[in-house]
């Protein structure tokens, strides 16, 4: 069980981690990084799967299925658009090498 102060410490450390990671990013990567972090919270799919897996009443099942559907869209869509954006980042040296 994670509760009380252990949970608070966890939230606090994770929050500082997120803050630190972003604070050193160059402006050119802001949009891909926002898109990438959008993908990272796509892990919500895991939670939705557990919710659907443990659902017993039809209502809970419906809600769980909607959650899984939405979560999978977050993860899959977030990955594809981020990949597409980052694919295009290359310096002129790399561009030359490709030719």
């Amino acid at each position: 069980m994670i509760d009380g102060f252990l949970a608070l410490y966890l939230f606090m450390l994770a929050a500082f981690t997120g803050h630190e990671i972003i604070s050193r990013v160059p402006v050119i990567l802001h949009t891909p990084l926002m898109s990438g972090s959008n993908f990272v919270h796509g892990i919500v799919l895991v939670g939705a799967m557990v919710a659907l897996g443990e659902a017993t009443t039809p209502l809970e099942m419906w809600i769980g299925a909607i959650g899984v559907f939405l979560g999978a869209g977050n993860a899959a869509g977030g990955y594809v658009v981020t990949e597409r954006m980052l694919e295009m980042f290359k310096s002129s040296k790399q561009a030359e090498a490709k030719r």
């Binding site: 994670i2 949970a7 929050a15 981690t17 997120g18 990671i21 972090s37 990272v40 919270h41 939670g47």
Partner: peptide, 22 residues
């Protein structure tokens, strides 16, 4: 936290903090 899944807590909170700064 509700589901007691640490991976969700960490990933979600990291994005929450990073996104707020951004």
């Amino acid at each position: 936290y509700v589901q007691q899944n640490v991976a969700l807590i960490i990933a979600g909170t990291v994005v929450g903090a990073a996104g707020t700064l951004l």
